[in-house]
């Protein structure tokens, strides 16, 4: 199945060593963005080139790979990356969270809790949490060095002043082990509590050439205020297919008359529940039978 024209997992060995060294330093300094010499990949920037390079550096032939895009295993980005590693690495693939040893994700953390031995690789567009507040890399680097994160709290405070609540709903900034403020990639803030995990979490930003990491059980705190504590909110609804009241939901517009339904963003979680007999408000007749 492996395309023999490519080295195992596509990248050449020297590139993989360079990425591997960056990953190890990232693990040693959790939350710090390690610069790396990102390569051009056979897909455009914005399609997960950072995540793909991190995954390529970590994969072994024994791995079982799962790739999700916004929780879904069956979207273009997820399908093409999964096929890419099937062809260039000959690795086994799955859509089941429990069966996967390496999971590459775009903008979600699976609903099923991850376990020791699993690796979660995030695709990151803008790794610098301070970038929209301070465009100069020289300045944000200094701010991280001096642990000068007042500007981020001002931003969250302005949210409260304007809207009465912190309106940041995704890419919600976190503080890692009380030291570095980190962008958890554009995951919904609903997923933030799951950043404290038994799995190894690696973050790859291809265009921005940064890798960072969270070792298992690393302390990750979402920034907030005493009188405005962090609230990992979600749509106030149950999944219309599997009835889950605790999963993160996508809103799907059904017609031109305001009809809509809410479904789990994590397709594996939803399908597994339906296979076990759980039903939602809009499950079809055949499903219920």
């Amino acid at each position: 199945m492996t395309d023999a024209a490519y080295n195992f997992a596509y990248l050449d060995e020297q590139t993989k060593r360079m990425i591997r060294r960056a990953i190890l330093k990232g693990l040693a300094v959790p939350g710090y963005q390690v610069p790396f010499a990102s390569r051009e990949m056979p897909m455009p920037y914005g399609w997960g080139t950072g995540g793909v390079q991190v995954t390529a550096a970590c994969l072994t032939p024994d791995d079982v790979l799962k790739v999700i895009d916004q929780g879904a295993d069956d979207t273009t980005n997820a399908v093409s990356i999964r096929r890419f590693f099937e062809r260039t690495g000959g690795v086994a693939v799955t859509t089941r969270t429990e069966e996967a040893s390496v999971i590459q994700t775009r903008h979600r953390i699976p609903e099923t809790p991850l376990t020791e031995g699993q690796i979660l690789v995030y695709q990151v567009p803008i790794p610098e949490p301070l970038r929209f507040l301070e465009p100069r890399e020289t300045e944000t680097r200094k701010m991280h060095a001096l642990e000068e994160y007042g500007l981020m709290h001002v931003k969250l405070y302005e949210d409260i002043a304007h809207n009465g609540a912190i309106s940041t709903a995704y890419a919600y900034p976190v503080k890692v082990e009380g030291r570095y403020v980190m962008d958890p990639s554009p995951i919904p803030k609903f997923d933030n509590p799951r950043l404290e995990s038994a799995a190894i979490q690696l973050f790859g930003a291809g265009r921005e050439q940064r890798i960072y990491a969270l070792p298992p059980h690393t302390k990750v705190v979402s920034l907030d205020f005493e009188d405005h504590p962090f609230d990992p909110s979600k749509a106030d609804h149950d999944c219309d297919l599997c009835g889950s009241g605790s999963s993160y939901l996508d809103e799907v517009i059904m017609d031109d008359e305001g009809g809509r339904m809410f479904v789990c963003s994590d397709t594996d979680y939803c399908a597994t529940r339906r296979a076990r007999g759980f039903r939602g408000a809009l499950s079809s007749e055949e499903d219920a039978a």
Partner: peptide
């Protein structure tokens, strides 16, 4: 393959 397995152990 050997470097990949060794790196996973190092990781």
């Amino acid at each position: 393959v050997q470097a990949a397995r060794a790196f996973r152990a190092a990781l």
